[in-house]
Design a protein around this nucleic acid. Sequence first.
DNA 1: TCTGGGGTCCTAGGACCC
DNA 2: TCTGGGGTCCTAGGACCC
Length: 392
Amino acid sequence: MSRLVMHVDIDAFYAAVEQRDRPEWRGRPLVVGAEPGRRGVVATCSYEARRFGVHSAMPIAEAVRRLPAETVYVRPDMARYAEVSREIMRVLGALSPIVEPVSIDEAYLDVSGLERLVGPPEVVARRTKAAIREAVGLTASVGIGPNRLIAKLASDARKPDGLLVVRPEEVRAFLDPMPLGALRGVGAVTARRLEQTGLRTVGDVRARPLEELRRRFGARIGTQVHLQSNGIADDRVHPAAERQSISKETTFAEDVVDSDVLRETLRWAAQEVGYLARHAARKGTLVTLKIRLHPFETHTRSRTLAAPTADDRILFDTAWDLYRADTHAGRAVRLIGLGLSGWAQAPVQPDLFADMESREQDPADDRLDATLDAIRRRFGRHCIQRGLSRRP
DNA sequence: TCTGGGGTCCTAGGACCC
DNA sequence: TCTGGGGTCCTAGGACCC
């Protein structure tokens, strides 16, 4: 029996919450993000704003230039969004016992067993959308497919308020026309590299031999794009994984040279990180200082401690020491912050193969297993690390 | 145009050990 | 005097995701 994965994504989440709670903002361009006139970017914007070409991660100054005067700008209210998110995840938990939240407004669900209980995938998807709308008054886009990749692309394909089910026999036709950036792990840099060799769509990648892709782009990326272009991806859904690190950083309104300001900012970050770590019942051994210098040059400096800690004072002393010892000390600083990781008793992360080999054999896994076996035979047992699996 | 903040994972060189 | 091979840890940087 093949698995059925559903991806749920709330449309323009932060902006939708704001418009839901302030009716006078509905129907108007709305931006949630940095304050206009200061440094920062758009976190999310309403669909009315997207019509002007504005999108997430766009510098706020550029958004202001593009948007009309009646645009509403609001700062994010994370506590409120988190509350709405918890309610949405609760609703999803009532639909399937296997829910994996991937961010504040997105989740994967294993809906394999729901056919007999609820009905065909389309019905499951419609019910999900209706339940979310009823519970929190927001619209969601929902995609269902044989694995995470296809489910995610299916939910993206009909946004906003979308619904799409892609069946196994439809996967290739669905994927082939997509741009390379649709594949997981292919961002701007990799997409450019792929395009330089004449590859433009997922179908183009699928038409190339695996060996060539591996030779040109490296074992990891080559194998990943090959598998994905054939519609092969992780179909497992697991409950939330543990956090691997906790960090706090801030960008100054203007670049800072005053070391007192840097020191006190680092002290604040250490207190925040220490507090969060203690509340997560975590102690870490790796302290990482992050600085971004003028104009936009990022560096990290880290130190492994002899004993795990969640102590503000130790975090601050370590980070400040790293800063003072750094050759860049004294230059104008745009951003400073620190992180803590390397938890005591770190959870073991099985790699993709280990997990697949220990898994109970399922006839529907044959195609995936055959492909992986072939790759293993040709390139050695350890040629694929984690990578298609985004969570332990 | 001028680039947030919070994360994950991978790579690669050097140290160090056997 | 010149020089193994494998494994793991540490550190810095970078691609990518939401």
